[in-house]
Amino acid sequence: MNKLQLHGFNNLTKSLSFNIYDICYAPAEQQQAYIEYIDEAYNATRLTQILKDVAEIIGAQILNIAHQDYDPQGASVTMLISEGDVTPPMSMNSQSPGPLPETVLAHLDKSHITVHTYPESHPDNGISTFRADIDVSTCGRISPLKALNYLIHSFESDVVTMDYRVRGFTRDISGKKHYIDHNITSIQNYIAKDTQESYQMIDVNVYHENIFHTKMMLKETELENYLFEKESNLSGPEKSEIQKKLQKEVTEIFYGHNYRKKKIKVAD
């Protein structure tokens, strides 16, 4: 892709919303322990480190960090960032998965990264769901899509939803407005092949508005991976019932609908 000759600063704003859902089976007597585990595993300190790594991937300078753990559960981190000193290579806007932090340095203009967590549990059937929302907003030439590879591998994710949008416009030296400065056909192009093979993936894109949406659902759902207490003494029928509950939870979140059993009419 040829470099745009701009009139002044690149005014495009590129925003990535990255949401993960981790599903677990923890019956009533285990739910408090599950919440405590999640609060410890994804506390504000660890989330801050994840955001620091994201900033490193895209070459950002961290200006300020605000973080907070909440009672009874959840945490938030907000990070203000500014541009780095290194001009981004042309490959930074290519449609390819981004590397991990130790292998890339790029440019980021003044913007922010935030994360919020939402642990919750079903009151009756033992299903608990942990959600983390991460927003990366950048201005200028660099796109936050290069952070996706790292983010996906930073969480245990059963369902992932991603939204990417380019807002505003920038002018070239002739005065022509440009509403996007890089080629993109799908968010999937920024996700590694091994990850793509592990998930069912759907795109909903509005190309003329520069809006891109991708959601992912894990294909393999082995029960042992979803039990909070791995050594639970469950019978065959209990395992089958729990598996159905877990699959229903994952499917409903992925498709954004609640599904109920259809009542069958019995003829008189």
Score class of each variant (00 low, 15 high):
residue 129 T to V: 15
residue 186 S to N: 07
residue 156 E to H: 06
residue 143 S to G: 03
residue 237 P to Y: 09
residue 233 N to K: 15
residue 152 I to K: 08
residue 256 G to E: 06
residue 229 E to N: 15
residue 137 S to Q: 11
residue 258 N to L: 10
residue 212 F to V: 09
residue 250 V to Y: 03
residue 149 N to Q: 12
residue 160 V to S: 05
residue 201 M to K: 11
residue 228 F to I: 15
residue 221 T to V: 14
residue 140 G to A: 04
residue 187 I to P: 03
residue 119 P to D: 09
residue 146 K to Y: 08
residue 181 D to V: 00
residue 172 D to Q: 09
residue 201 M to S: 14
residue 229 E to G: 00
residue 214 T to P: 06
residue 144 P to S: 07
residue 132 A to Y: 01
residue 151 L to Y: 10
residue 243 Q to P: 00
residue 191 I to A: 10
residue 211 I to R: 13
residue 140 G to Y: 03
residue 228 F to M: 14
residue 138 T to D: 02
residue 191 I to H: 08
residue 207 Y to P: 03
residue 241 E to R: 06
residue 159 V to P: 03
residue 241 E to C: 00
residue 182 H to G: 02
residue 231 E to Q: 15
residue 128 S to E: 01
residue 214 T to L: 15
residue 155 F to A: 03
residue 148 L to G: 01
residue 177 K to F: 04
residue 172 D to C: 09
residue 201 M to G: 07
residue 166 V to S: 05
residue 193 K to H: 09
residue 239 K to Q: 15
residue 137 S to P: 00
residue 241 E to S: 11
residue 168 G to S: 10
residue 181 D to I: 02
residue 225 N to Q: 15
residue 141 R to E: 10
residue 149 N to W: 03
residue 186 S to Y: 09
residue 257 H to S: 03
residue 214 T to A: 15
residue 140 G to N: 07
residue 137 S to K: 09
residue 246 L to E: 02
residue 188 Q to G: 05
residue 135 D to Q: 12
residue 173 I to G: 01
residue 226 Y to G: 09
residue 172 D to Y: 08
residue 253 I to E: 12
residue 176 K to W: 02
residue 141 R to Y: 12
residue 199 Y to C: 04
residue 208 H to G: 01
residue 158 D to V: 05
residue 164 Y to H: 08
residue 134 I to T: 12
residue 175 G to R: 00
residue 132 A to K: 01
residue 182 H to E: 11
residue 247 Q to N: 14
residue 246 L to V: 14
residue 171 R to H: 10
residue 175 G to S: 08
residue 140 G to I: 10
residue 241 E to T: 11
residue 165 R to P: 00
residue 134 I to R: 05
residue 181 D to H: 10
residue 165 R to E: 15
residue 217 M to V: 10
residue 148 L to V: 11
residue 233 N to I: 07
residue 204 V to K: 14
residue 240 S to R: 13
residue 185 T to A: 07
residue 212 F to G: 06
residue 238 E to T: 10
residue 244 K to Y: 05
residue 216 M to Y: 12
residue 222 E to H: 11
residue 164 Y to W: 07
residue 120 E to P: 00
residue 188 Q to D: 07
residue 186 S to M: 04
residue 258 N to H: 12
residue 142 I to T: 12
residue 186 S to A: 10
residue 178 H to G: 06
residue 168 G to H: 10
residue 155 F to N: 07
residue 211 I to W: 13
residue 176 K to P: 02
residue 188 Q to M: 09
residue 201 M to L: 14
residue 215 K to L: 09
residue 243 Q to V: 00
residue 237 P to G: 04
residue 191 I to E: 02
residue 120 E to V: 01
residue 178 H to Y: 10
residue 224 E to R: 13
residue 168 G to Y: 07
residue 148 L to F: 02
residue 250 V to D: 02
residue 149 N to T: 13
residue 199 Y to L: 03
residue 177 K to W: 01
residue 151 L to A: 04
residue 119 P to E: 08
residue 230 K to E: 14
residue 194 D to S: 11
residue 230 K to H: 14
residue 165 R to G: 00
residue 133 D to M: 07
residue 203 D to A: 12
residue 125 N to H: 11
residue 185 T to I: 09
residue 180 I to M: 11
residue 235 S to D: 11
residue 134 I to G: 03
residue 129 T to Y: 00
residue 232 S to H: 10
residue 126 G to Q: 05
